[in-house]
Computed example of a mutant assay.
Amino acid sequence: MIKLTARQEQILKLIQDAIENTGFPPTRAEIAQILGFRSANAAEEHLQALARKGAIEISPGTSRGIRLVDASHDRSGLRGIIPAPHPAVMHLSLPLVGRVAAGSPILAQEHIDATYSVDPSLFRSRPDYLLKVRGMSMRDAGIMDGDLLAVKKADSAKNGEIVVARLGDDVTVKRYKKSGSVIELLPENPDFETIRVHPGREEFALEGLAVGLLRAWS
């Protein structure tokens, strides 16, 4: 069993709670703000210590690239970024959605590129399909171009959740925020702009919630 200091246990629990509540780990800045650190560098030092002890793994270059690796600490069912599992342990069949044609359902047969069989315990909630990520707008959430996002069909979301949304003829992955009647779809990359959806002005629909991520290692 991993031996941690009280502060390390506190940070690990914060990571667990963030993953359980939103599906994704916190940023260094969020950890620093919640725990009252003067800077994100202090949070980084504690994360590096947790990584050295084998409680987490850190993906360089992303603000949310934190993965829980000790099963005894992972209460969420979401294991973060994982390699595609070996066929011998696969037993949940999920359609892989590639590009989505304008005006047609996301799970229309012509959108299905392949079917993957995976272990359902890899996800915090049972997904309905995998969506191939296009672009880097969610880079700082650890979601990269070419990743396979596990999605559970849903028509509503809580603030802070990462969603798959349809805007007119486009399908996008963003973090959801609703204030009054206005919905904001927030990127996790400063190079991209927030999308604001005003009632009655745009054709908008939620397609699902992100519940996990698969990445095929080369």
Rank of each mutant, 00 (worst) to 15 (best):
G36F: 14
F37P: 01
F37N: 01
A40T: 10
N41K: 14
A43K: 01
A43H: 12
E44K: 09
E45I: 15
H46I: 09
H46R: 13
L47R: 14
L47A: 10
A49S: 06
L50V: 11
L50W: 02
A51M: 03
A51R: 11
K53I: 03
A55G: 13
I56S: 02
I58H: 15
G61E: 14
G61Y: 08
G65Y: 09
I66L: 12
L68P: 02
V69C: 15
D70L: 14
S72V: 12
S76T: 13
S76N: 08
G80Q: 01
I81Y: 04
P85M: 09
H86E: 12
M90C: 09
M90V: 05
H91V: 10
L92Y: 11
L92A: 15
S93G: 08
L94I: 06
P95L: 08
L96E: 06
V97Q: 08
G98P: 12
G98C: 12
R99K: 07
A101N: 07
A102P: 12
A102F: 04
I106F: 04
I106D: 14
I106K: 11
L107A: 11
L107S: 13
L107M: 15
A108H: 10
A108Y: 10
Q109H: 08
A114N: 07
A114W: 06
A114M: 10
Y116Q: 11
V118R: 00
L122A: 03
F123P: 02
R126K: 12
R126H: 13
P127V: 15
D128W: 05
L130W: 00
L130P: 02
L130V: 02
V133W: 02
R134P: 00
S137A: 12
S137V: 09
S137N: 15
M138K: 04
M138Y: 03
R139L: 14
D140A: 04
D140R: 10
D140C: 13
A141P: 00
M144Y: 12
M144L: 06
D145T: 08
D147A: 14
L148H: 04
L149E: 08
L149G: 06
A150P: 11
A150D: 08
A150W: 09
K152M: 11
K153R: 12
A157P: 01
G160C: 14
A165I: 00
A165L: 07
A165V: 02
A165Y: 00
R166Y: 01
R166T: 03
R166F: 01
L167T: 11
G168N: 08
D169K: 05
D170W: 11
V171C: 06
V171W: 00
T172Q: 05
V173K: 03
V173C: 09
K177F: 12
K177C: 06
K178D: 07
G180N: 12
G180T: 10
G180H: 08
